[in-house]
Design a protein around this nucleic acid. Sequence first.
DNA 1: TGTTATATGTTCAAGATTGAACTAAATTCG
DNA 2: CGAATTTAGTTCAATCTTGAACATATAACA
Lengths: 152, 152
Amino acid sequence: MSRDILPWDMPRFRNWIAVAKAHQMVEKVLGARLAPLGLKLAQHDILANICRMPGLTQNELAERLLVGRSNLSMLLPELERRGWVERRADPADRRVRRLHLTGEGQTLTLAALKVQAEVIERMMTILSDQECAQVGDYMRRIAAQMSLWGTD
Amino acid sequence: MSRDILPWDMPRFRNWIAVAKAHQMVEKVLGARLAPLGLKLAQHDILANICRMPGLTQNELAERLLVGRSNLSMLLPELERRGWVERRADPADRRVRRLHLTGEGQTLTLAALKVQAEVIERMMTILSDQECAQVGDYMRRIAAQMSLWGTD
DNA sequence: TGTTATATGTTCAAGATTGAACTAAATTCG
DNA sequence: CGAATTTAGTTCAATCTTGAACATATAACA
């Protein structure tokens, strides 16, 4: 007669669901705030990563974004067409295309990052500096943990 | 000459990026683990929410999932066709369709939730019970904070 | 060297997701 | 009551995302 223990009764499950929910909410708000800049979320993610790591290859970018390479093959031409991104050949490895922002792309990306930073700052204000640091610490530990097993 | 302060220099920004990354990684792993059950991530989310709140309407479900109503209109017929979900008319409000799991749907959903719980348990093992509870607390505070402004 | 295996990027078609326009039912309020 | 507004759900076309098959380039190694 004992009722099954549902996962929502388990603290780790319930707490992780809260992480997922918070993240989804932030993505939704961020998407809405980027629209006025003419940027989709996916485009912003691409630009932000190129800004952070100029010269990275499409493959490296795909791994950072956790998307397939084909996804970038579909999206990058548009960013190039708009004059925000350049794909430069690498003389040392003629397979790869190294990604760089143009001046205009850099300007736009910094504006978009500012919007993103505002959203994040604003919603994290309810956390103290120390609590915020703990969140980062915990999440990096979780990400490291996950990297260990992808294949198990 | 002073270099611009990039958002990655800001603790709140950097720490939130860690949240996003961890969440994305978990979603990817979970998606792979659910495939053997014949379930997509989106389908699992639907089933799990019906399991948690039987009898909820499509609109309520859409709000919980942060997706559009049309999304559910596209996905539910398939879940119904497979005999996992029933959409029952509500005599008190003939607009709504209340969602319920069938016996088979319940069985499948519990199996899928078990998979999800295993993934979560496993990756959260690097956090102590107390740290895990803190994560949940912080994230719920963030979600509450966000609910306040959606429109600002 | 030459053959095989790996790695990068593209294409294309299938599947998923979205938003706007729509129908029908319920609610508001003059 | 009855017209106007709001709400629930559907449809459909446009957009996004994915994975498999492919072409080309590099690496490994016999």
